[in-house]
C-alpha cells in the first residue's frame, strides 16, 4: 500500500509537470476551448443586452437594446434599457425612444455632448432616471433605469 501511494504521488506530480509544460504553448487553444463553455458570456447587466431595434439616421445609427432585468434567479423588478448612438453624432442628440416596441414613445432623451449633460423626459411611468450616459469609442451610450 505504501509503495502504491508513493507511485501514485509521483505519477500525479509528473502529470502536473507535463501540464505546466503544455500550459503556455497551448494557452491559446485552451482559452478558446474554455470560451466555448455555455457560461462563458458576459452578463447582460454589463453588456447592456442584445439589440432590439436599429434605426439608421442621417449620420449615425440608433440602437435600442432589449431591456435588462436579469437577476440571479429569474428577473428583477428594476432594470435598465441601453441606447447606443453609433457613427458621426450631432453636437446635441435628441431622440424619442420606444424601448418596449409598443409603438408608443416611452421617453425623450436629450444629450449635450460637449457639456456631457443628459436630460430625460419620461413619457411612461415605468421610466425612472438616467443610470449611465457616457461617450464611447463608437459614439455615445446611455442606460436608462426602468421598472418592469
Amino acid at each position: 500500500m505504501k509503495k502504491i501511494k508513493i507511485a501514485a504521488g509521483i505519477f500525479w506530480a509528473i502529470l502536473c509537470l507535463l501540464l505546466i509544460l503544455v500550459l503556455f504553448p497551448g494557452l491559446n487553444n485552451f482559452s478558446s476551448g474554455i470560451s466555448r463553455f455555455p457560461f462563458m458570456k458576459i452578463n447582460p447587466n454589463l453588456t447592456g443586452g442584445e439589440a432590439a431595434e436599429q434605426i439608421v439616421m442621417k449620420s449615425c445609427t440608433l440602437v435600442v437594446r432589449k431591456p435588462v432585468f436579469d437577476g440571479l434567479i429569474g428577473e428583477r423588478k428594476q432594470g435598465f434599457v441601453q441606447i447606443d448612438w453609433r457613427g458621426n453624432l450631432p453636437e446635441i442628440i435628441s431622440d424619442t425612444i420606444d424601448y418596449d416596441l409598443d409603438k408608443k414613445p416611452d421617453f425623450v432623451i436629450r444629450i449635450g455632448r460637449s457639456e456631457s449633460s443628459t436630460v430625460l423626459k419620461p413619457l411612461n411611468p415605468k421610466v425612472r432616471k438616467v443610470g449611465i450616459s457616457t461617450p464611447t469609442s463608437y459614439g455615445w451610450s446611455a442606460r436608462i433605469k426602468i421598472e418592469k
Partner: peptide, 8 residues
C-alpha cells in the same frame, strides 16, 4: 409577488 421579487 413584490416580496418574491425583492426577496433576493
Amino acid at each position: 409577488i413584490l416580496g418574491l421579487s425583492s426577496g433576493s
